[in-house]
Write a protein that binds this DNA or RNA. Structure first.
Length: 915
RNA sequence: GGGCGAUUAGCUCAGUUGGUAGAGCGUCGCCCUUACAAGGCGAAUGUCACAAGUUCAAGUCUUGUAUCGCCCA
């Protein structure tokens, strides 16, 4: 083995090997009793994996590899999403660069172009996943627009329509004038911006005077249907029922009352514009108001507006009308005002409430069972508190607008005859059959919201509506791993559709992960220039390349300077190559239940170091075993029994943490066992034990046994390096195993738990630590041999001393240990305690007297503080009588041993001081 | 306005039925000890945001306050 861990070569080797040998296949193990399945949340087919994906993939892969190791028939289902609007916008932008629109190209050609783009860029994600070692079943890879999945979409649509749960209706929707499509409520983002409030006069039709109202959108005055006041508003009691002129038009409208009006806001009188505001739409319906739409699909003033405004963009029209109002003396004032205009999450354009025909899912009947599934525990959110968020939304859920006026996606399976009759069917032929022969049909132009097909993902990928073996074996899936940002978009809808169509919940657990942020806690985004590509952490990247990557194709070139500066500061030397395993270990270690995760490169470095540690430990073991035959039945030393006992404890904890989805605790457990128990102590203990023929064989057997289990335990987190070590171990043990992947996950062996050996090693560690501490504080090099006296030892101390003389010599460089009778006078010494036993290291030229006095005083001071704590508790009558006896006894013992130690140290201090 | 979350060592974070506050990184010493300097050994560092309450006992449970963040309207 190489002296230094080199991830690059190892990873390339096993990436190929795993797939060649088909080790990710879900068909393997088909006779096993249990099945385990996870659906990969399908990423956008033309996108690339960001840190959040890599994080979630790591979690899913750990779970997948673990269950594979447990012998379950395991499926991790991969695939990608067509991501309707996002993908279409990319291709439209490409066209725009050539100064053409999708309408110039035509629907069919345009869709072809998108498919081309999908083919061209669709490989990015899958190749990134391979780099990460994601062990998905590639043979089962699906795309949301595959034939089978599209058929499932149609079937669901048709059935929901038949049941009256999908309907078409003219309603106000959120209209994106840039996309020229409706979008769902969820795709609307609101952010506070600075705007203006315009106060406008509406003259009375009869008599003098006017009503004053305030509006942020004066251009919609032209479509007003009424003015409204609160029914109980005394100020306007006399004017209710009167009529006013709508400024800039010839129309007149009434003054009405409605509870919706907020008396305290503005003048207490509002204009009602049913076609251009969601609230006003409801008021308008109550009062049977005329609905006037002023806008074209691209948000210009249409023919319903007075001539002089027609054709103007909505914002130009606003300016114009303000000017005209002012000229007409109807503008009272304009004040700055904070407002939150709705914007499209894709286009960023300000949205318009817009009156169009759209398809909707009537959601309440579907939501009810989905709420119950979480309430009755069929589905569990992890961490649990997310179910509050879920209920909060589900209890107030609105009908879902599913039609989009774009071209990329599943075309709505509805056809119209020339009279406008609708035929919803699985295919055109079926629709034709419904309509009758010879009737000319045209298909609905719209496509479905991308999330409609995503909602079917857990069963459509398994072959639904066919009753496939995969479907019966793997549905419901075991866990969904995803971010909180798509609980509403995706998770809730999968639950609703899964229950409705697949007859069961789509998953039993929902593991909601935190969000990966940059080192400053900022959300990673392209425009902020703080994104990290997981592959760059694996392969490393120079500062120059990173700068280039972060600043190319910027929407705002101004930002480039700032981003450059930031990047230069944070990554002055670029990013070193850490390897996939180090990155995966980092993600696993960060996977606690918090909401946000600040990603710290230093952590990756630390886990890369861990890999190196593991690598070198393996080298050590292999060097010590080379050319030797291993006897698994050899007698075991106390150290051997100890490490095996610790190993059982580790396995127990790992198992628990995994079932709790606490991958952070799992990785921490393994980190500590490997580094601190196995490397720091056991490998050091093994050195003298290997020198001794009596203990050599047992030590060799234990070294390799524990190493083998370590690699198997760590494999789900760091598959590459463990696979390489496993292979190297095979050459030593002469075994010929295909892969670590096919090894079964280690089980706890209770017979190996040994409290005696653990107690003895703790004794040994205390002894060695005591010596090291004196060495450390006295600046005595660890290489300098020492001798010591022991005094005040009991039988078991004596036994341990006799057993471990050569270990103490090796690990503490303790040449001679001389026993003193209690009455013997010890020479001037530095002292450490192991329980009641005193270890005395003669000062004799080695140790400075004052230093030892200071050291002892410090120790005593520390113990004194503890003593006071224990005494305080025990002197409290209420504690002694109120607390459980066991607890009180523990405190008593603690106090007793602290008092003993203080007494010993004080005696020693007095003795040295007096010399 | 409604809901959720966070506040623990210089930094990033663990802390599972309440029972002596932990890790990694960083810092300071001493060591190139034949697996590993991407390392070893040792050390220092905390009114657990604040206030009140429950309890023999609160980082942990309850209530309130402050600051920060997210979601929804």
């Amino acid at each position: 083995m190489e002296k230094t861990y080199n991830p690059e070569q190892i990873e390339a080797k096993y990436r190929a090997l795993w797939e060649d040998k088909n080790l990710f296949s879900s068909d393997a193990n088909s006779t096993s009793e249990n099945a385990y399945s996870i659906m990969l949340p399908p990423p956008n087919v033309t996108g690339s994996l960001h840190m959040g994906h890599a994080f979630q993939h790591t979690i899913m892969d750990v779970l997948t590899r673990y269950h594979r190791g447990k012998g379950d028939q395991t499926l991790w289902q991969p695939g990608t999403d067509h991501a309707g609007i996002a993908t279409q916008m990319v291709v439209e932008r490409q066209l725009a660069a050539q100064d053409i629109t999708r309408h110039d190209v035509g629907r069919e050609k345009f869709i072809e172009k998108i498919w081309d783009w999908k083919e061209q860029s669709g490989g990015t994600i899958t190749s990134q996943m391979r780099r990460l070692g994601s062990s998905v079943d590639w043979e089962k890879e699906r795309f949301t627009m595959d034939e089978g999945l599209s058929a499932a979409v149609n079937k669901v649509f048709v059935q929901l329509h038949e049941e009256g749960l999908i309907y078409r209706g003219k309603r106000l929707v959120n209209w994106d004038p840039v996309l020229q499509s409706a979008i769902s409520d969820l795709e609307v983002v609101a952010q506070e911006e600075n705007g203006f409030m315009h106060h406008v006069k509406y003259p009375f039709v009869d008599g003098d005077g006017f009503m004053e109202i305030a509006t942020t959108r004066p251009e919609t005055i032209l479509a007003d249907g009424a003015l409204a006041v609160d029914p109980s508003d005394e100020r306007y009691k006399d004017v209710v029922g009167k009529w006013v002129h709508v400024p800039m038009t010839n129309r007149t409208i009434p003054i009405i009352t409605d509870e919706y009006v907020d008396m305290a806001f503005g003048t207490g009188c509002v204009k009602i514009t049913p076609a251009h505001d969601f609230n006003d739409w409801e008021v308008g319906k109550r009062h049977k108001m005329e609905v006037i739409n002023l806008l074209t699909p691209d948000a210009k003033m249409n023919a319903n507006a007075p001539k002089e405004y027609q054709g103007l963009d909505r914002f130009v029209a606003r300016k114009q009308i303000i000017k005209d109002l002012d000229n007409a003396g109807l503008l009272v004032k304009i004040e700055p005002h904070k407002l939150t205009p709705p914007r499209g999450d894709r286009s960023g354009a300000i949205l318009e409430p817009y009156l169009t025909d759209q398809w909707f899912v009537k959601i309440a009947p579907l939501a009810k069972p989905a709420i119950d599934a979480v309430k009755n525990g069929d589905i569990r959110f992890i961490p649990e508190n997310w179910n509050k968020t879920y209920f909060n939304w589900m209890d107030n859920i609105q009908d879902w607008c599913i039609s989009r006026q774009i071209w990329w996606g599943h075309r709505i399976p509805a056809w119209y005859d020339e009279q406008g009759n609708i035929f919803v069917a699985n295919s055109e032929a079926e629709a034709q059959a419904q309509a009758g022969e010879g009737v000319k049909l045209t298909q609905d132009n719209d496509v479905l919201d991308t999330w409609f097909s995503s909602a079917l993902w857990p069963f459509s990928t398994l072959g639904w509506p066919e009753k496939t073996p995969d479907l019966s074996r793997f549905y419901p899936t075991d866990v969904l791993v995803t971010g909180f940002d798509i609980i509403f978009f995706w998770v809730a809808r999968m639950i609703m559709f899964g229950l409705k169509f697949a007859g069961d919940v789509p998953f039993k657990d929902i593991y909601i992960t935190g969000l990966i942020r940059d080192g400053q806690g900022q959300k990673m985004s392209k425009s902020k220039g703080n994104v990290l590509d997981p592959i760059d952490l694996i392969d490393g990247i120079t500062l120059e390349d990173l700068l280039e990557k972060r600043t190319q194709g910027m929407m705002q070139p101004k930002m480039a300077k700032k981003i450059k500066k930031q990047t230069q500061q944070e990554f002055a030397d670029g990013i070193p190559a850490f390897g996939t395993d180090a990155l995966r270990f980092t993600f696993a270690a960060l996977a606690s239940f918090g909401r946000d995760i600040k990603f710290d490169l230093k952590r990756v470095e630390g886990y890369r170091n861990f890999c190196n540690k593991l690598w070198n430990a393996s080298r050590f073991v292999l060097m010590k075993l080379e050319g030797e035959s291993i006897n698994p039945k050899a007698d075991l030393s106390t150290a051997d029994q100890w490490i095996l006992s610790r190993l059982q404890n580790t396995k127990k904890n790992v198992e628990k943490h995994l079932t709790d989805y606490r991958l952070d605790l799992m990785s921490q457990e393994l980190y500590e066992f490997v580094w601190h128990d196995y490397c720091d102590w056991y490998l050091e203990l093994s050195k003298p034990l290997l020198q001794d023929e009596a203990t050599k064989a047992g030590t060799q057997a234990t070294l390799i046994k524990v190493l083998n289990e370590i690699t198997t335990l760590l494999h789900p987190i760091i598959p590459f390096i463990t696979e390489e070590i496993f292979e190297q171990c095979n050459t030593i043990t002469g075994k010929d195993n295909t892969s670590l992947m096919t090894q079964s996950y280690p089980q706890v062996d209770e017979t190996l738990v040994s409290t005696e050996s653990e107690a003895e090693i703790i004794w040994l560690q205390t002894f060695i630590l005591g010596i090291r501490k004196i060495r450390g504080e006295m600046n005595i090099p660890p290489s300098k041999p020492l001798s010591c006296f022991v005094q005040n030892f009991n039988e078991s101390d004596e036994l341990h001393l006799n057993n471990n003389a050569n270990i103490l010599s090796a690990l503490a460089k303790m040449q001679e240990i001389n026993k003193l009778a209690p009455s013997d006078e010890a020479p001037e010494s530095a002292m450490a305690l192991v329980g009641e036993m005193k270890i005395l290291i003669p000062l004799a030229g080695l140790i400075d007297k004052d230093q030892e006095i200071a050291r002892l005083s410090k120790e005593i001071e520390k113990l004194d503080k503890q003593k006071m704590q224990f005494e305080g508790k025990l002197n409290n009558e209420k504690f002694v009588s109120g607390a459980p006896e066991a607890i009180v006894n523990v405190e008593r013992e603690r106090l007793a041993s602290t008092l003993n130690a203080i007494a010993d140290l004080n005696a020693q201090l007095d003795k040295i001081s007096s010399l």
